[in-house]
Simulated scan of single mutants.
Amino acid sequence: MADEMENGATELPAEPLSERVAEVLRERIISGQLPAGGKLNERELAADLEVSRIPLREALPLLEAEGFISTEPRRGAVVHSFTYRDAQEVFDLRLQLEPLAASFAARRVAEGADPAALLEALESARTGVTGAHASGRNSDLHEEIVKLADHHLLRRMTGLMNGRVRWLFRLTPERDTPKMWQEHAELVQAIAAGQPALAAALASAHVERGRHDSLPVLAERLPASADASARRRRRGR
């Protein structure tokens, strides 16, 4: 686990050990280091991460709640296979939640909240727009909007979805373009100006453009459903 931090693969914040373990495993699943359909071997993972099996076992329910793993009879914890239906559902929820978050964030700015952290996240996304970590920085920007919105229930709901959004962004790296940054810039400017209606409209348009551009690509890259994914894995054996 320490080596992973030194190599820059995953930066671990000061959190309970189980959450830190979940963060590392989540990133490995998103990056493909832990392949879809693969079984998580607790003994091997605990040794690799240099932790006991207790925090590892405590981390697994966190990942299952986010949809990254599932527990199967006789197999234990298995990495979820991201499907086209999963991608559709992520966009469905983003279309509902992100305009709401943008509106709340702009309203708070209008009431005196400081948008400095959001503006910093925008600049970080701009400098990384063509880099290897662009998708992660774009995700950070969306999460910063939710933080600024300061709506506890909304934050809990989006928290369960954030990992899958990052997974989705990683699957479509061609979307990380200067055009996307410009969409982000317009959205952040509306929030920073305290314009809730405009911010909500721009967030909705941004997600809808992403859906329109991403789903045809994802239809070619992903199995249609969990059943189709299982059949694909069996053929590959």
Rank of each mutant, 00 (worst) to 15 (best):
A101Q: 09
T158W: 15
L60A: 06
M157I: 15
V129F: 00
R53Y: 00
L95H: 13
I30S: 00
P61Y: 06
L63H: 06
E42T: 09
D176F: 04
V24Y: 01
A201D: 13
Y84G: 09
Q189F: 02
V78T: 08
D176R: 05
V207W: 08
E58Y: 10
A105M: 00
D3P: 05
V188P: 00
H206S: 11
E72P: 03
E6L: 05
Q96V: 13
R155E: 11
P178C: 01
L141Y: 03
I29N: 05
G136R: 05
E72W: 13
R175W: 01
A106L: 07
L12D: 03
G32R: 04
L171D: 10
L118I: 00
R26V: 00
E50T: 13
A117G: 04
D140V: 15
G210P: 00
N162I: 10
P99Q: 03
A2L: 06
S52I: 13
N162Q: 14
H80Y: 07
R164S: 11
G38F: 04
S31H: 06
G8E: 09
P216M: 02
G159L: 14
E186R: 12
P216T: 04
L25W: 09
K179D: 15
P223V: 00
A77E: 03
V78N: 05
G210I: 05
D86V: 01
I30R: 07
E19Q: 11
L215R: 01
A102Q: 02
R156G: 14
R20Y: 04
V165S: 01
E50A: 13
D227K: 07
R26Y: 01
L119R: 12
N138Q: 06
V21S: 04
R20A: 08
A14G: 03
G163L: 08
L119W: 02
E98L: 06
S204M: 14
A2S: 04
P73W: 11
R170N: 11
L141H: 02
S139K: 01
L202D: 04
